[in-house]
Design a protein around this nucleic acid. Structure first.
Length: 906
RNA sequence: GGGCGCAUGGCUCAGCUGGUUAGAGCGCCACACUCACAUUGUGGAGAUCAUAGGUUCGAAUCCUAUUGCGCCCACCA
């Protein structure tokens, strides 16, 4: 009959079509003034990345948008690429060389970077290959990498521009320090997590109030001291003051007193500052300016000494005295022991706290005083806030606007230096000779005087001519390169190369991303857009939900709850993966995923496959070449064909609207419902007996053909495969236009008429089922129609109703008179009667009718109540009141009929 | 401490600007394979729309409070 298999096999089509698309450069876009541009830049995945469900969702959404707009005739560019992901990649390569027993320091900076590049060449395109598996139609010829030579030029350009503008500065501040990665982290890179810790109460003796010693020489509880509370006792070695609130009566007379810092045996002062919360702990707080941001501020204000007691690796340093060389947590234990021994540990209380964790290795970060580079953010934030407030950039869903604005309005300066090797090295050079000249006796020198910021390595110092120059050791935060993504990917600032394209594609159209990186990336791109391009980088930001497992937990390797998209593609196909993901992703809601979800997508693909198979088996190609318009003009199509066309165009219209509103799931579900339940379940079943009729041939072919086109953005592979099965001479479906909306063919009247017909068929099927009449048992039925117009309709549809409900015969009768041994169903505008052959349990039917009567009676009562409410009649709109009145009339009629039927059942 | 989101049939979710009978998928029950598809078809059961107030002629829908779950932000030592 046909050589099309009864099951769709994704494996036979997906790779084949992807290859064809790629080989024919169907994804490539170029500035074409004759067309409207549509552009999305991909959120560049980490080179170390492997595709997870989050990517699958993110990239499916983008691919749908790109394919949709491409079909709508827009020049659609999906700009792809990867991110060098400084810390993440460095960690991965460090792990890999650790297998050979090597550390990065063993190799040295240059050799290590070489290793990273080698690693990148070998494994860096994994995720790109995987993106291709899901069907991503990126313009791969444009693929960029944030460490490319050209891209690096953009980064350096931006750094120097900002420096010259005075927006980049170097300074000593308390930053988030990861002792494992041994680098500074931006605030966003050190998310806080709750921990169960303790609040330790320490006693600091007051000098000059001669402590009374016990026999062992230790302090007793009665001695004069101040009690401070801390969660990190090991930092006490760096204390340079104890602060109290000036209003605090308990401590008023102690202000200005000197304390003996235990274990360190240093003298520190009691200072007063209103920042101190009297209600917390004891109201007295130890001040460690080198290890806590608040204390740092206090230290600056009160001119305190900054004593750093920790090494970059999280071990105590020589300032820690006896504790030098201990790990910070080990030191904590030992210090507590020692204090306890000396009677200086008053008590320990359990205390919940939250501490920053390294977003890469999850080590608890250490607030750490160090010299870092920062970007002043307030001036950059200003236009970026305006743009969103004025609606030039819109978030979808809207609520993220607030989150964005809240962060932007409280923005802090951005720490951009990282003490790692893999990344864009800071384009800052220092002149050693200049440094010597302005060095202070303490060994410090003002940074400004020896700094040379330069796009290329300078030969000699522009100030003194010295060639004794070295480059800053640090590299830039990865986001300092990705925030340029929407224009640096076009080779900005290389004018000859970028100008034309940027003019065309920038601002890009939409950005699709997850909520986690609104601050990291989205906000910063907006700022960079204004600063360097003078305009927004994109118009719409679509924020999709997070993919979680069925219990709502994030998918993660450690939890072992990962569903691998590649496994799903293997088992169900990429189209199934895409469709299932999309159909359950309500706008902005998190996605709760289980393996079974993908069956829906697979089943849908299979349904489409088989319906197409059915059409192909029955298709007479010579008939379908007729232009559909011929029928439109003559308006001589029968109602069934008019109905399916109306339904198709309604679906097209609605799905288009949903896509424009970023409501992908609703669009997907519209297609699903239309195809399965209207085209297959009703239309194809109805035309089956007359499938060779020209009208049916043309319409079934056209609807299927157009449906494949609107399906294509969602399920690109199967739609392409079937497209060619329908007509092997055609080019790729990718290049086909999105179907033109034939508004006049949307005909709600026809749809309502067909609904009546379907209602009749369903009712008869239900009656058969209730009466347990076997399908092979061909019975007769009668139908009574109330209104005149319906009478005509039903009369013309009798054969269809008879066939679809597997009746022997169905006769249209004028007036209904209750008879014995009948089974009756009352519908909105008709009544259906099946004569009983006496096998059935009449009492049961009677009972059922009694219940129906009760139901209708109570409905009538409710309606009457509503209508007797004066306020309702007065205030509700007239049409609503009329509707209610009409409904009541109908109910009354139905009641009369039902009673008649019940009485007939004797 | 602030902010946000979510609570709708056994499960996962739709339900736009308040208006007849609250939808879908999965699961469940019954029936049906000469018929494109059993990854199928037909029919069915199953929901006091978290709780308590309020606005309204009318609330799953709007407002307030409460409870439970989840997330984000924050310099509580």
């Amino acid at each position: 009959m046909t050589d099309i298999p009864t099951r769709y096999s994704p494996k036979d089509t997906e790779d084949k079509w992807y290859k064809t698309w790629e080989e024919n450069s169907l994804f490539s876009a170029k500035a074409d003034p004759a067309k409207k541009p549509f552009c999305i830049v991909i959120p560049p995945p980490n080179v170390t990345g492997i595709l997870h469900m989050g990517h699958a969702l993110n990239d499916t959404i983008q691919d749908i948008l790109i394919r949709y707009h491409r079909m709508k005739g827009e020049e659609s560019l999906w700009m792809p690429g990867t991110d060098h992901a400084g810390i993440a990649t460095q960690n991965v390569v460090e792990k890999s060389i650790a297998k050979e027993g090597l550390k990065r320091q063993d190799l040295g900076r240059e050799k290590f970077i070489e290793k990273v590049w080698e690693w990148k060449e070998q494994y860096g395109s994994t995720i790109i290959r995987q993106l291709k598996k899901i069907g991503a139609s990126c313009d791969w010829q444009r693929e960029r990498f944030t460490m490319d030579e050209e891209y690096s030029k953009s980064v350096v350009e931006v750094f120097t521009r900002l420096y010259e503008k005075g927006l980049i500065y170097k300074g000593s501040y308390i930053i988030n320090w990861c002792p494992r990665c041994q680098t500074a982290l931006a605030d966003e890179e050190a998310p806080h997590h709750d921990l169960q810790g303790n609040l330790y109460y320490l006693r600091y003796p007051i000098k000059g109030q001669s402590p009374k010693h016990n026999s062992e020489g230790n302090l007793s509880g009665a001695d004069p001291y101040i009690v401070v509370a801390t969660t990190r006792p090991e930092t006490m070695l760096g204390d340079t003051a104890v602060a109290v609130n000036p209003k605090d009566k308990r401590y008023k007379k102690l202000i200005g007193e000197t304390l003996i810092l235990p274990l360190a045996n240093r003298q520190i002062k009691v200072i007063a500052d209103s920042m101190v919360d009297m209600k917390f702990g004891t109201g007295a707080v130890k001040v460690t300016p080198a290890h806590d941001p608040n204390d740092y501020a206090l230290g600056k204000k009160h001119n305190l000494e900054f004593i750093n007691v920790m090494r970059p690796d999280g071990f105590m340093n020589k300032n820690a005295g006896d504790y030098n060389g201990m790990d910070r947590f080990e030191a904590r234990e030992v210090i507590l022991e020692d204090l306890k021994e000396k009677g200086l540990l008053e008590k320990i209380e359990p205390h919940g706290l939250s501490a920053g964790h390294c977003y890469r290795c999850h080590t608890i970060i250490e607030p750490y005083l160090s010299e870092q580079w920062f970007v002043k953010m307030k001036p950059l934030a200003k236009p970026a806030i305006e743009a969103v407030k004025k609606g030039r950039i819109k978030f979808h869903p809207k609520r993220w606007t607030k989150v964005y604005l809240n962060w932007m309005e409280n923005i802090q300066d951005w720490c951009i230096s990282r003490q790692i090797w893999w990344g864009h090295r800071i384009p800052v050079y220092y002149c050693k000779d200049c440094q010597k000249k302005c060095q202070s006796p303490s060994g410090r020198y003002p940074v400004k005087d020896s700094v040379i910021v330069s796009k290329i390595r300078p030969e000699k110092c522009p100030k003194c001519g010295s060639s004794d120059i070295y480059q800053d050791e640090d590299v830039l935060d990865t986001w300092f390169s990705s925030w340029l993504w929407p224009f640096a990917t076009f080779y900005w600032p290389d004018k000859p190369r970028s100008e034309n394209e940027l003019k065309y594609f920038y601002p890009t159209s939409a950005l699709v991303t997850a909520p986690e990186i609104i601050f990291f990336w989205v906000a910063r791109m907006i700022m960079a857009g204004f600063e360097f391009m003078g305009d927004i980088p994109f118009k719409d930001v679509y924020i999709h939900g997070t993919v979680r497992d069925i219990e709502g937990k994030k998918m993660s390797k450690s939890l072992g709850n990962i569903i691998d998209p590649l496994d799903i593609i293997n088992e169900y196909g990429a189209d199934a993966l895409r469709f299932s993901l999309i159909s359950i992703t309500a706008q902005g809601q998190d996605v709760f995923l289980s393996q079974e979800r993908f069956e829906q997508g697979r089943n849908f693909a299979n349904k489409i496959w088989n319906a197409s198979r059915f059409v192909l088996i029955n298709l007479d190609h010579s008939k379908v070449n007729t232009d559909l318009c011929v029928f439109f003009k003559k308006e001589d199509l029968d109602i069934v064909n008019r109905w399916i066309l109306s339904r198709f165009y309604s679906t097209l219209k609605e799905a288009g609207k949903k896509l424009d509103l970023y409501k992908f799931n609703e669009a997907a579900n519209l297609l699903y419902g239309f195809f399965w339940h209207e085209f297959c379940d009703w239309y194809l079943e109805i035309i089956k007996p007359d499938i060779n009729k020209t009208h049916n041939q043309v319409v079934m072919y056209k609807v299927l053909e157009k449906f494949l086109r609107i399906l294509h953005p969602f399920m690109p592979f199967i739609s392409e495969e079937l497209w060619h099965k329908l007509d092997e001479n055609k080019g790729s479906i990718m290049l086909e236009p999105w179907p033109h909306l034939q508004e006049p063919l949307i005909d709600k009247k026809t749809e309502l008429k067909m609904d009546s017909v379907f209602e009749a068929i369903t009712a008869i099927r239900m009656m058969r089922s209730e009466l347990k009449i076997q399908p092979q048992n061909k019975i007769n039925a009668e139908i009574f129609v109330k209104s005149k117009s319906r009478k005509e309709l039903i009369s013309s549809m009798l054969p269809l109703i008879t066939g679809m409900s597997k009746l022997q015969g169905l006769s249209l009768k004028e007036d209904y008179a209750p008879l014995k041994t009948q089974y009756v169903k009352i519908l909105r505008d008709m009544t259906i009667v099946i004569p009983l052959s006496g096998i059935v349990d009449v009492d049961k039917l009677k009972k059922d009718k009694e219940e129906e009567i009760k139901k209708v009676e109570s409905d009538i009562k409710a309606k009457k109540n509503i209508l007797s409410n004066e306020n309702f009649v007065k205030r509700a709109p007239g049409e609503i009141v009329e509707k209610e009145e009409l409904k009541l009339e109908e109910l009354k009629k139905t009641l009369t009929e039902l009673k008649g039927i019940r009485d007939g059942l004797k």
